[in-house]
């Protein structure tokens, strides 16, 4: 991993299955490290000044003409403004179409026996609740370290990951942000290698 520039203002490990929130100021870099490999990190962000402006997967896809997030990808808001830039990553690409697992969507994908399992939307709701945000603030998110290919006929699925222990992604904030993360607890598909693990968060600059 390349050195981060500027002082380290935060360096934390997010336990497996847990939510995490932080403010990332314009110009600072958030580094996420996939400590044990193939751990999906579900990620939302909001403009600190106006949280009705938030990350938009659709605006990001339209602006870059590609569904995958790679080094250089500009992460756009729902109002067409750059919120962050992927300044570096050791993973070939990351996902932004797969969304977040929820208790409710788990009942569709796997059956009603999964209804009581912990899920990313539960983490997002808990992470956002302390800021007064709620369900209306759930939108399509980023899944760092998750692999969702789309085949020629439109077939799509969360498949085996392409990350590995110690791989990372760096995002530089282009505005003051509130970041809300779910360290994905999903155990019914390969997004976490069927074994949720901790990830490391570093904010520098």
């Amino acid at each position: 991993m390349p050195d981060l520039t500027g002082p380290i203002v935060l360096d934390e490990v997010v336990p497996a299955r847990a939510p995490w929130t932080a403010v990332v100021r314009k110009g600072q870099t958030l580094r996420i490290v996939d400590l044990e490999g193939n751990q999906a990190v579900d990620f939302l962000m909001y403009a600190l000044a106006d949280d009705a402006e938030r990350y938009s997967a659709q605006d990001t896809i339209a602006a870059q003409g590609n569904i995958f997030l790679r080094t250089g990808s500009v992460l756009m808001s729902n109002e067409g403004n750059p919120m962050g830039v992927v300044t570096g990553t050791s993973v070939e690409y990351h996902d932004t179409i797969g969304g977040a697992c929820s208790c409710e969507s788990n009942t569709l994908r796997y059956g009603h026996h999964t209804k009581s399992q912990h899920a990313c939307v539960e983490n997002f709701l808990q992470g956002n609740a302390r800021y007064g945000r709620g369900k209306r603030d759930m939108v399509s998110n980023i899944n760092w370290f998750m692999n969702v290919p789309v085949e020629a006929d439109g077939a799509l699925g969360i498949v085996d990951g392409i990350s590995a222990p110690g791989l990372y992604v760096d995002m530089r904030a282009e505005m003051d942000l509130v970041v809300v993360v779910s360290n994905c607890p999903q155990i019914n598909n390969p997004c976490n290698g069927f074994d949720p693990t901790p990830v490391r968060m570093v904010i520098a600059g």
């Binding site: 659709q58 929820s102 077939a155 799509l156």
Partner: peptide
């Protein structure tokens, strides 16, 4: 509407 769930649950994007 949840577009991500619409695509993911049906295993198809179109």
């Amino acid at each position: 509407l949840n577009v991500a769930d619409t695509q993911k649950v049906q295993w198809n994007a179109y």
